[in-house]
Design a protein around this nucleic acid. Structure first.
Lengths: 143, 143
DNA sequence: ACAATAGAAGATAAAAATGTCCTTTATTAA
DNA sequence: TTAATAAAGGACATTTTTATCTTCTATTGT
């Protein structure tokens, strides 16, 4: 469904959001451990998200990644779009470039429905909303 | 959503199914043109599906690919599973290997729903059911 | 000012997916 | 039975994705 890059990105963002609630910044190494992802790779991914202003960062001692109030309101759909683009939400299921209402592929309408369901679900899910369940160990970000 | 390989596979299978209705066998070149896919690449893909008995083939003059009655009843889910495996239908949205009811990722339940929707849609779609609309040029397999 | 810290940026490497070519095998029609 | 045809199979090439390493830059506390 998502690229590995995108899976890591979502997990990292949820983790950062949780830590940000208490005003903490969090370093790459801590993130990598918390979500069980390759350190250098996560660094690249967050660098990218940082350029796109989906996450905030500060260099130097006491530095690290964090989310401003606004960023913690961003949706999973925003993250997916930033990393994988919008193909999942708008593209043809069979990979046709010009598939559309007027010139549909054989599964156009059925596919459109699930695409919309996916989008709605990801748009409704805000990055900041997962902290409580994580803290209670009701949900997990690794393995 | 699907790999490119899988997209080609589905399009090729739908095309073969259509041609098979009238008892025709169809060669790689014709398939490649009809679905606008790289010839040698779909050759490989169909070779694979042939080994898995999802499509039938005959070598030599007048040979080619075709679908027996039984094969034209196979679902898109069968093809996806044969090519991409069942990760789309059973895997965790965030890539966690051990995500499950007892140890869910933060989006486990929402994701499960869309996964099931996707599966149901693909399982309901039989490869042989698209011929009429294709013949009437109401749906398309290329571009 | 300076040393230590931590992300940014660029280069490189490894693995997987995608795409191509060449030889072999099975089948057909003459 | 032979020549032509078309898929099967194996090897190889290219591109994209995933992963790692090194150097540079900004920030902090002393």
């Amino acid at each position: 469904m998502f690229s590995k890059t995108c899976e890591y990105a979502i997990r990292a963002m949820i983790f950062i959001a949780q830590k940000s609630k208490t005003g903490n910044r969090v370093g790459i190494k801590e993130i990598a451990k918390a979500i069980d992802a390759p350190e250098y790779f996560i660094a690249k991914i967050l660098q990218n998200l940082s350029r796109k202003r989906l996450v905030q960062s500060l260099k130097g001692p006491t530095g690290g990644f964090f989310l401003e109030e606004e960023s913690s309101q961003c949706s999973l759909a925003d993250i997916v779009t930033a990393i994988d683009g919008d193909n999942l939400f708008t593209g043809c299921g069979l990979g046709l470039k010009n598939c559309n209402e007027n010139r549909p592929c054989p599964i156009h309408n059925e596919f459109k429905k699930v695409r919309e369901d996916i989008y709605n679900m990801l748009e409704a899910a805000r990055i900041g909303e997962f902290s409580k369940q994580l803290e209670k160990n009701l949900t997990f970000l690794k393995r």
